[in-house]
Amino acid sequence: MDIFLQQLLNALSLGGTYALLALGLAVVFSIIGLINFAHGELMTAAGYVMAFALAAALPFPLAIALAVAAPVLLATAMERVAFRPVRGASGTTLLLTSFAVSAILRVLFQNFISARPVPVPMPSALSGVINLGPLHLGIIQSISIATTALMLIGLTLFLNRTVAGRAMRAASEDFAIVRLMGLRANGVVATAFAISGLLAGVAGLLWVAQRGSVDPLMGFLPVLKAFIAAIIGGLGSLTGAVAGGFLLGFIEVTLQAWLPEAWLPYRDAVAIMLVIAVLLFRPQGLLARKTVLKL
């Protein structure tokens, strides 16, 4: 029982990070049909800003604020420079553009920062453990679960209570018609990228907090996982992305805990097989939505 609860918390923490990343991918995809593979570099950017801010001995809250602001700016800049010129182009063009952006950023990180991991000296208070009876809950893990919950609640409120949020939901159903409401298309798209940057930034901080360092390739694997999560959930569905993220987190943690030791190196392969099995039965994903991309 204790072990089960412990693993549940692990799964919530890992799945939550995947969910935030998958959500960031889905927010952009639902509006302009772009799968942004440069999403991982947004995570990495958050990690580097955090590393430098802490190295410069800035106060911790300020460091966090800067580390979250950086990917928001970077995401909107990406949209303005790389994706706006190809908006409305085919899915392949968009995808290749995002690979290019991703590769360029990775090379910039390698050449101007370092190809090696840069340490992110998080405050030592964060590495402690809270003992709740038989449960040992890592502080970083708890923060990760709480942050994910806050982000999900915040995003839900934004999407359902504000004009900009409702415009984004409308745009994910019919972008052209949102323009007929007198709402600026560029504004809606920029907001989507800013939100995806925010989600990537928060996920990036949670990620570096667990590993303690950042390197140019850091974002690749988690974003690949998030992409898989978004596919399981039904690409473009925001609820689906969250569900897919948590599901993937649960699968991975469960396999890690209960797979025979000899099988552990194949954990990811087994996880992907399970994903394929899901897609064989639900090719559209668990919570599929129709994507409307007109004009």
Binding site: A176, R179, L180, M181, G182, L183, R184, A185
Partner: peptide, 8 residues
Amino acid sequence: LTPELIVR
């Protein structure tokens, strides 16, 4: 003009 400006 863009659609949003025409509508306005």
